[in-house]
């Protein structure tokens, strides 16, 4: 199994911490999901931050800070440096947003920020599209993990471009990849894992479900099922039926 900058995570689920009905439900959802990583952000101190941080620390999971909401390389770089100071980890989920409606990454800003941060010793987890050329440039810039989107953030559409994701997965066999964003159902997570991705990252699909704790558990099971299947060498699909029950010994009736 590919690791994430020399760290192996116990389970292939990374879960966001935003938009839950309450902190208690967030905590219960994490425990039910078995997620190994929690994504967090940093915002202007308004008095709630320290209590939130205490809950996250109590979960016993790895922390992955993000640069969500940054629209330029400069802003994302400064945010990443502040995140390292605050959370005391070199990991950064690097988001440089390029479009207001789709929240899709700005490939140029993303590459620029990846170059700078990788040189500063950050473990960059760039939020990217399935673009093969951009992926190559990010790897050349020092990224050892890629986080291609499934669909636009918060859309719940699933895996919009399965062919593109498969091509990307096959193109960089040594790079750990996380399908991040756009997942709506556990079956999307299982499908991503079956395709050979190393983890999935989601937030809205769990936090905004009617029962976030049950949905968190469902995603945790689906991600693990998909990971298991990916290692089990699936059968090749066929056009025509072949009987699974033996014909030999069938009665002459």
């Amino acid at each position: 199994m590919r690791d994430f900058y020399d760290t192996a995570f116990d389970t292939p689920l990374m879960l966001g911490t935003a938009q839950y009905p309450s902190p208690a439900i967030m905590e219960a959802a994490f425990r039910a999901s078995g997620a190994s990583v929690a994504t967090v952000s940093l915002r202007r101190e308004a008095g709630q931050g320290q209590a939130f941080w205490d809950i996250i620390r109590g979960l016993g999971v790895h922390v992955l800070p993000n640069t969500a909401g940054c629209h330029s390389a400069r802003e994302a770089i400064t945010t990443a440096r502040m995140a390292r100071d605050l959370f005391e980890t070199d990991r950064i989920k690097l988001e440089v947003i390029g479009h207001a409606d789709t929240l899709q990454p700005d490939p140029f800003g993303l590459l620029e920020a990846t170059e700078v941060l990788a040189a500063e010793g950050f473990e960059v987890f760039p939020y990217t599209t399935e673009d093969l050329v951009l992926a190559g440039r990010l790897v050349d810039a020092g990224a050892r993990v890629l986080m291609p989107w499934g669909a636009p953030i918060g859309s719940g559409l699933g895996l919009n471009n399965r062919h593109g994701l498969r091509t990307l997965r096959a193109g960089f066999p040594d790079i750990a990849m996380v399908v991040d964003a756009g997942l709506g159902l556990p079956s999307h997570a299982a499908a991503a894992m079956e395709m050979g991705f190393d983890a999935v990252l989601l937030n809205t699909a769990v936090a905004q479900a009617g029962d976030p704790v049950a949905m968190a558990e469902a995603f945790g099971l689906a991600a693990r099922a998909g990971a298991l299947a990916a290692r089990a060498d699936a059968m090749a699909p066929r056009e025509m039926a072949t009987p699974s029950t033996p014909l030999i010994g069938k009665a002459w009736l």
Binding site: G16, V40, S41, R43, M82, G154
Partner: peptide
């Protein structure tokens, strides 16, 4: 001066 704290994120 910007003073930032941990916050929920996805």
């Amino acid at each position: 001066l910007e003073v930032l704290a941990p916050m929920q994120g996805g």
